[in-house]
Amino acid sequence: MPLIGTKKWFEATTKAWNSDPDNVKSMAEVQESILLVVDDPPIKGLREKVESDVIDPEILKRMEAENRAELILNIEDGQIKEFRFARPDDRPTVILSGKYEEFEKVGKGEAETVWQILDAKVKFKGVLPRFATYIDEYTKLWQIIIANTEVP
């Protein structure tokens, strides 16, 4: 599995989602730009393990300084069109923020998305009816991300 935050990680996650027609079909009507604000990301030791061509040194430096990773996941017609580090000019339609371990719990099936949000462990900002409609698909998305993540 690729290390978190590397180019291969973004690619592998994208491929894992897009290669399953059921995933794509389940979110076929979804057009969202999802900003993931992940606090306490498991990046300790990442610097020693990766080369500068697999992770932008500036981004790594900022992540370490802020102890936070900001990722953008653009979904169009059910496919992940882009998964990368966020940029200042991104205009997300959904913001999900919380500690990495809280996203990880959903990904590992240890917690339910709805309760993570109602319990303020993951904060949701966006159009509620759209999110509510695809809450199971969002859960699947976390599962795929976590399943394709290796931490240093």
Binding site: E112, V114, W115, L118, L128, P129, R130, F131, A132, T133, I135
Partner: peptide, 14 residues
């Protein structure tokens, strides 16, 4: 339904 609360309620069985 329009608010999406019907779908959320179904997940709040606890």
């Amino acid at each position: 339904e329009e608010m999406g609360l019907d779908k959320i309620w179904k997940k709040m069985v606890a």
